[in-house]
Design a protein around this nucleic acid. Sequence first.
RNA 1: GGAGAGGUGGCAGAGUGGUCGAUUGCGGCGGCUUGCUAAGCCGUUGAAGGUGUAUUAACGCCUUCCGGGGGUUCGAAUCCCCCCCUCUCCGCCA
Length: 429
Amino acid sequence: MLDVNLLTEDLEGVAARLATRTKADLGLEAIRDLNTRRKRLQKERDDLVHEARELGPQVAQKKKAGEDASALLARTQAIKERQKELEAEARQVEADLEARLLLLPNLPHPDAPVGGEDDFRIVREWGAAPTFDFTPKDHVALVEALKLAELGERATRLARSSFVVWTGAGARLTRGLINFFLDLHTTEHGYVEVSPPFLVNARTATGTGQLPKFKDELFTVTADDLYLVPTAEVPVTNLHQEEIIPGEQLPLAYCAYTPCFRREAGAAGKMTKGLKRLHQFDKVELVRFCRPEASDQEHQTLLGHAEACLQRLGLRYRVKELATGDTGNGAARCYDLEAWAPGSKEWLEVSSVSTFTDYQARRANIRFKDKPSAEHPKPKTTFVHTLNGSGLALPRVVVALLETYQRADGKVTVPEALRGHLGGLEALG
RNA sequence: GGAGAGGUGGCAGAGUGGUCGAUUGCGGCGGCUUGCUAAGCCGUUGAAGGUGUAUUAACGCCUUCCGGGGGUUCGAAUCCCCCCCUCUCCGCCA
């Protein structure tokens, strides 16, 4: 959510920045006008209430003295009626204003490249492309040959298309990767592991920005008004919903494994075979809370932690900085990590590392405050900045891993870093 | 799911319907005292919105907030209704 005051003070500036990410009419003028109306209504109401409050004791005094208080009572009655009108109107204006503000995207970061999907910037590439003295298979062939997962009817029968059943070594590989990532982040990168609910309420889904705009993307448990999490970002960022965090505790760093449930409503036309796009997948997510002035640095730190996952696994990848028009609604700036899949010869997005500045903090009302000190006797309560990044999203890592480490004998070598999490297993197959 | 108890400021814990944003204690911050430490004493210490002075650091005033939402009343932390949550006991269950 944007600061409505910023929007009011510098409408043109805000409009210009938002225009770099969307051509849609965001109704900024209407928002400004609603805000002005809101203020006027409140002022009128407050002044009336103030008058009524002063009248109260006078009424009591007159009654006590046995005098006629009817003139005063008539006035308080009139005020009360007007007050009710004003409050009803203010409620409507506020609801309308809130609804509109919740739909606005975040301001893009000033350093982010301007443009659309194709205007990304490649920040760096890591690792060399693997070479093969045979024709490498794609992951679908490998998964089927090694019986790592059920990709077809069996999975579909249980739920619907685009679900998968991991089997045998495939299930174990999944579990091993989750543990590998969690262990890496908790023991070497200083994250606190959390295991949150996989269902969240509407307030929580609004806090991180999934609602109201992206309702179509969520699976909903209608009987209970709950939503399946599309990413651990949602429950973990909202851990501090409505809180004022002591300043000395920042930055906070959490990692969490959850399955992620996504309807992929917009992607129906481009359904891909195999493991690349699923309605349910496993992911380890990293979430950080920090002071506003630290968030750019924190973003780089977070990016490094996500990259470490791929480096340990020895997977070739590139870091892509998305252009303003391609970054997610709430993100100010976003890096995608793309792993190379040599069998299908394509880059696969396995992580998205974003800074949200105070956009989510405003929605979820997450603030911080320093202790008073001699220099700052009255510290201000301020919105934190939130950041998150995948570290990493599993199925596509599995794809890259299988295709990268496949051998002529049909087996797949397990990268050394992962063996400890697979009971010492050296190869699949 | 059933019965009972309870939700008040960072925490603990008061609060006959009328200056109660709220007694008090602890904690925090500042100061005094002190050879040092401890103790003691004094002061200060929530959030949101609005508005004025003013300017980037603030200050004054107004309104709102005692789990959430309604209601009664000139006036509600205090009375009434609904909901949520926590605790205890019972039931059910991995």
